[in-house]
């Protein structure tokens, strides 16, 4: 299998008062194309920072991120945005839908940014897949949390990404709704052959992925296939 994500010697520090606070320290790991991968760890262990660096949302202080064969250190902001638009999908804990757009318009955004002429048609199909075919013209404020996360899911798959990053996708949902969303996520992932990187507190969810990376205090504690854990 080829590597879709390759992290080498990653370090990230933030200024804190007069000192530099190291959030991530010497992180290295790889994710295979098509693999499901979870990053777990307690609050403040650097999970979200790591996800941001992997997706090119922020720059590391040291080390490199190779995403879909491209070293992110060699790309500028717009080139990274273009890479995300073509290859990456996102799901956030708090959905992050644009409040001024309807469900359909929210899903269309990544396609519209590509200038895709069939954006509306494709988005409709995706919304039907997540069970929201009848609510396509609703605004985020008119949808429940579970429905909003399903719109976010449809949006994440809209540009047929090679890799999908999910940050605590069920964090704001009740257990039952959370389970439905996860099942949908895994199904869509399987159907599209997408690589999935999930950040979660939920060990049960982590156990449903193929590989688990455990972080603590900004360092890797373990990085093992699920069966071993």
């Amino acid at each position: 299998m080829s590597k879709i994500l390759k992290i080498t010697g990653l370090e990230k520090t933030y200024p804190s008062g007069n000192k530099q606070l190291t959030v991530l320290h010497d992180i290295s790991f790889e994710v295979e194309r098509g693999q499901t991968f979870s990053i777990v760890g307690p609050s403040g262990s650097g999970k979200t920072t790591l996800l941001g660096l992997c997706a090119g949302l922020d720059s590391p202080n040291a080390g490199s991120v190779e995403l879909c064969g491209q070293d992110l250190n060699n790309l500028n902001e717009d080139e990274r945005a273009q890479l995300r638009n073509k290859e990456v999908g996102f799901i956030f804990q708090n959905f992050q839908l644009l409040p001024t757009l309807t469900a359909l318009e929210n899903v269309s955004v990544p396609l519209e940014l590509q200038g895709n002429k069939d954006a509306t048609k494709k988005s409709k199909i995706l919304l039907e897949k997540v069970g929201l075919g009848v609510r396509i013209h609703h605004y985020p404020s008119q949808l429940s949390g579970g429905e909003q996360q399903r719109v976010a899911l449809a949006r994440a798959f809209a540009n047929a990404p090679s890799i999908l990053f999910a940050d605590e996708p069920t964090g704001n949902l009740d257990a039952e709704t959370g389970e439905k969303v996860i099942q949908l996520l895994l199904d869509l992932n399987k159907e599209n052959g997408t690589t999935l990187v999930i950040i979660t507190h939920d060990l049960e969810l982590a156990n449903r992925t193929q590989q688990i990376l455990k972080l603590k205090g900004g360092k890797i504690v373990t990085n093992q296939p699920t069966t071993v854990l």
Partner: peptide, 15 residues
């Protein structure tokens, strides 16, 4: 917030 979200989804600065 909106701009960041758009950038996360792949929008360029010019857009």
């Amino acid at each position: 917030k909106e701009s960041v979200l758009l950038r996360t989804l792949g929008a360029k600065n010019t857009q």
